[in-house]
Design a protein around this nucleic acid. Structure first.
Length: 454
RNA sequence: GUCCCCAUCGUCUAGUUUGGUCUAGGACACCGCCCUUUCACGGCGAAAACAGGGGUUCAAAUCCCCUUGGGGACGCCA
């Protein structure tokens, strides 16, 4: 049987790290097995679902390069399907209508919390037939009183729970929308999902869904509950707790592949390998190499992974990503080549090439006077003359130029490098001075020196 | 409170399925040294873990049990 997985976000907020990682695992597993990935939007909460969230989720997935083969399907557009299943359960006596009002439930909840207990539906309407007319109702599942609910998880093995711990949970709300547990199970069955890969926080929902699968006579998919991503304080990463929109990571200069690599590696491993490109991940991915225990998100390591990907990216791709617009005389390819290895993120890479944006750079008065110290002007003049007389302009010859210049004038490297750096880049921090000169080229370098001296 | 899951360096992890090659390997971070024209990169090195207790066994990080610790879930949210 060929593999069908799904990513099923609810559009009630931005896409964050946890969601992305679930998407990645589903994506990698589907691709590894030449199966398909379905995107399903679980928008059954009419109050909280928003179009903005949906847009952001879709654009984040696109940016990350996580592609799907079917969908997006919207649960809000499949209401007949859920209703049909719910009515069938009603007919078979496996579900029942409950007329308890919200106020009543609210009261019970308060009562429970006063006693330091958790509210449980008292099964008031489980066996009643004195149904009122014209009153809102929900449909609840008639959970078997005492039965072992068993299912297996590819990571955790067989899991079994006594149904007495499960409420008569709502499957269809009074607005005609299904609840999560019902819609999810029905859709997984209807869509022929073979593998449900999701966060461990859903582990406790699974028995309910298994009950539904059984009740509607459908085959149970293979479950894989992936460990949680926790924040620095070891608490679950959530929207109000350290979880940022994936969009923020993009804006902070992270590459999509960097994020994917880091997140995939958080909970999945392949021996000692740390850096993977997308094809490698697809080829090597296996559910067997997932970790069972929760992982703490570490920005430092994400940064390192990201930097590593920048370093190994080809220059054309980076040029595209950075939308670099350098001064016309500058060789963009060379500029990127000489700077990408030392940049932790794309924003820093771009910033390090700030001195290449126009013909000249602005230099503060303070730095100007610093450049003039210790016979700076004099040295720069001499240096310009030597530079001007160069025939070949290569990595080697530039180095030679410096070596000879230092000897001839009996000075240290910093005596000339420091003023040069200031004059050529307008800053005390820059790429190596050889690199700066190579990037600017002979002409532009001479021009900047000349203007400064005069 | 009830139920479920988990447990190797500070962090991510390899090793656990098929006990022995593990005086536990790699990576990030930290610290030290080297390279060096700034910031970085890079190179080398150090420090750092099998939660505790019982079993089983000739032998346990690996199998079993208990304790402890951590996480998750208990909605007309998903």
């Amino acid at each position: 049987m060929s593999v069908v997985t799904r990513f099923a976000p609810s559009p009630t907020g931005f896409l964050h790290l946890g969601g992305v990682r679930t998407a990645i695992f589903n994506f990698l597993f589907a691709r590894n097995n030449s199966g398909k990935l379905i995107l399903r939007i679980e928008d059954t909460d009419q109050e909280r679902s928003t179009v903005d969230s949906l847009d952001e989720i879709i654009s984040s997935l696109n940016w990350l390069g996580i592609s799907w083969d079917e969908g997006p399907y919207f649960q809000s557009k499949r209401l007949d399907i859920y209703r049909k299943y719910a009515e069938a359960l009603l007919d078979e006596g496996l579900a029942y209508k409950c007329f308890m009002t919200n106020e009543e439930i609210q009261r019970l909840k308060e009562e429970a919390s006063k006693k330091n207990k958790i509210y449980q539906y008292p099964k008031t309407w489980r066996n009643r037939s004195d149904h009122p007319d014209n009153v809102d109702f929900v449909i609840r599942f008639k959970t078997p009183e005492s039965k072992e609910v068993k299912f297996s998880d590819s990571l955790r093995g067989g899991i079994s729970i006594d149904s007495s711990n499960i409420d008569d949970f709502v499957i269809l709300k009074s607005d005609g929308f299904p609840t999560y547990n019902f819609a999810s199970a029905v859709d997984d069955a209807e869509m022929g999902i073979t593998n449900v890969i999701r966060g461990e926080d859903h582990l406790s929902n699974t028995p309910k869904q298994v009950l539904i699968f059984n009740a509607i006579n459908k085959e149970i998919p293979t479950f894989t509950h992936v460990s949680m991503i926790l924040g620095k304080d070891k608490a679950k990463l959530s929207k109000r707790h350290g979880a940022e929109s994936i969009k923020n990571f993009k804006e902070s200069g992270y590459m999509a592949i960097g994020i994917i690599n880091y997140l995939a590696r958080l909970g999945w491993s392949h021996g000692d390998q740390e850096i993977f490109n997308l094809d490698e991940m697809i080829n090597l991915f296996s559910l067997d190499n997932l970790s069972k225990s929760p992982a703490i998100f570490d920005t430092e390591k994400l940064g390192w992974v990201n930097a590593s990907h920048i370093k190994h990216s080809n220059n054309d791709d980076l040029k595209e990503l950075l939308k670099l617009e350098l001064y016309k005389e500058i060789n963009v390819d060379l500029a990127i080549e000489l700077t990408k290895a030392k940049s932790k993120d794309l924003n820093l890479l771009k910033a390090s090439l700030g001195f290449c944006e126009s013909e000249y750079v602005d230099i503060s008065e303070e730095l100007k006077s610093e450049a003039r110290e210790n016979d700076g002007i004099d040295l720069i003049k001499k240096f310009s003359t030597d530079l001007d007389s160069m025939n070949e302009f290569t990595e080697e010859t530039i180095k030679e130029l410096f070596v000879t210049f230092l000897e001839k004038n009996s000075i240290k490297m910093k005596n000339i490098a420091s003023p040069l750096r200031i004059i050529l880049t307008g800053s005390k921090v820059s790429p190596g001075i050889y690199e700066v000169i190579r990037i600017l080229g002979k002409n532009l370098t001479l021009k900047r020196l000349k203007v400064f001296v005069s």
